[in-house]
Simulated assay, not measured.
Amino acid sequence: MASLFDTTRNFSLYTIPAAWVIAFVPHFYAATQSKLFDNRSSRTYAQTLEKDQTISKDTKSRILRAEAVQTNGFENLALFATAVLAGHLAGLPAAKLNTLSVGYLISRVVYNFVYINNTSEGMANLRSVVFLAGVGQVMALFIMSGNMLRERAANLL
């Protein structure tokens, strides 16, 4: 059981495909919430949904939020993947890479849940806080990587 939580083994590269899956899941959820989804023209789903009068406003809103959170996840994926790769290039310790990478994944799961179920100003504010927490972890990876590389360069002189 102790090996399950072994932070000396670096698994942060595996969090990149995991982040992709976390970004994709809301679209799968949205597609299963209505019979209007047509996989032959999946990008028109939102427009088709807007015109349909048979689906409740709440259901439409939840589906549209799920599509929006998917877009947000894919927009942030490149930044996250680049930060993880920068950490590897800089030689950050496995424990730091693992902690920040998994922290980002957790923030994305929470973000997805809060965004899809957001119906109040308080939930919207929580969504923003969770988003910034995830971005903060990505920025921490970049800053730590930059510091590590700067120290290495200084030691070469």
Rank of each mutant, 00 (worst) to 15 (best):
L4S: 07
F5T: 13
Y14L: 14
T15F: 00
V25Y: 11
H27G: 04
A30G: 04
A31C: 12
Q33I: 00
Q33Y: 12
S34L: 03
S34T: 10
R40A: 13
R43M: 12
L49I: 09
L49Q: 13
T54E: 03
K57T: 14
S61Q: 14
I63L: 11
L64K: 07
A66H: 10
A68R: 06
Q70D: 12
T71L: 12
T71V: 14
F74N: 11
F80P: 04
F80M: 05
A83M: 10
A86G: 09
A86V: 10
H88P: 02
H88I: 03
G91C: 11
G91N: 13
L92P: 03
K96P: 01
K96V: 13
K96W: 08
V102H: 00
V102Q: 00
L105I: 14
R108Q: 06
V109R: 05
V110R: 03
Y111E: 01
V114R: 02
I116R: 00
N118V: 01
T119F: 03
T119K: 02
E121Y: 10
G122L: 07
M123S: 08
A124E: 06
N125M: 06
S128R: 06
V130S: 04
V135Q: 06
L141I: 12
F142R: 03
G146F: 08
N147K: 08
M148Q: 14
R150C: 01
A153D: 11
A154S: 12
N155V: 02
N155G: 08
L156K: 07
